[in-house]
């Protein structure tokens, strides 16, 4: 296969260490800690009433995609755009699943919450981001067995290469595993999204070239990328130079 190359033009994140975007924040961490309260309302210029009814996973994902779009100068729009989003996760919306099903149990379904049920598809938050920012491109979630956070980026690169989408967001969204399942905390909570575009198509200076050599081999500016945190750090080091 031929290698696939795209340019990273924006990065946005919400992690247990804080939220930010690459052009305005120079420090990034994605610690394996409990996610503190965060205020996504500050990220959105216009009122976003749906934020209040979203589950934590959706709020994380929508906020990180908003920050990545802003970082790439693509957060304002008048006409809908052929921009896609592919996210990666391990646990997806399990928290919303539990919260919703706990409304089903009492009274045998009579109190099942349609509002909570709306967020029990792992891709629902992608739809919220699509509505908010007029993104009509490719749109789905990839569940990884072994969390590297890179599966969505691999897939996103493929969509750019095939010209399915003019631009695409690829990243990770993780709200952790609900305590009720008694699983060890092994995946850091948070969401990180990268804006990927054909090389040279954004007037803003890019962070570097992301290249896919095979299904499990990514390079950033020629250096191997093992995981998503490493990729953010590599991009930030370019900006610090």
């Amino acid at each position: 296969m031929e290698s696939i190359k795209t340019e990273i033009t924006g990065i946005g994140w919400v992690t247990a260490a804080g939220m930010g975007r690459a052009r305005t924040h120079r420090d990034f961490a994605m610690p394996l800690e409990r996610m503190p309260e965060f205020r996504p309302e500050n990220v959105f210029k216009e009122p976003f009433p749906n934020l209040r009814r979203m589950d934590d996973y959706s709020r994380l994902g929508v906020t990180a995609t908003a920050l990545a779009l802003a970082d790439a100068g693509l957060d304002t729009w008048t006409c809908k755009r052929n921009i896609g989003i592919v996210g990666t996760t391990v646990y997806g919306c399990l928290g919303a699943d539990v919260d919703y099903y706990n409304t089903v149990i009492p009274n045998r379904g009579a109190q099942a919450s349609p509002a909570l049920f709306s967020y029990t598809s792992a891709n629902s938050y992608l739809g919220e981001a699509a509505i908010r920012f007029g993104l009509t491109g490719t749109n789905y979630m990839v569940f990884e067995q072994h969390p590297t956070g890179l599966a969505g980026l691999h897939a996103a690169l493929g969509h750019i290469a095939r010209q399915d989408d003019d631009k695409i967001l690829g990243g990770v969204c993780e709200a952790g595993c609900p305590r009720i399942f008694g699983q060890p905390d092994n995946v850091p909570p948070g969401a990180v999204f990268f804006m990927l575009e054909p090389v040279g198509s954004n007037p803003l200076p890019g962070f570097g070239i992301l290249e896919s050599l095979s299904m499990d081999k990514l390079l950033f500016n020629g250096s191997p990328v093992d995981n998503l945190v490493m990729l953010v750090e590599q991009c930030l080091s370019v900006m610090r130079r």
């Binding site: 792992a122 990839v142 095939r162």
Partner: peptide, 30 residues
């Protein structure tokens, strides 16, 4: 040999999975 991955996009999940499978083959990645 491969670990595999899972695609989820509500009621279009498996349609997209087949599309992605075909894309991997066409691009030479699989």
């Amino acid at each position: 040999k491969s670990n595999g991955l899972c695609i989820s996009a509500s009621c279009a999940s498996s349609t997209i999975a087949v599309a992605q499978g075909a894309a991997l083959i066409e691009s030479g990645q699989a």
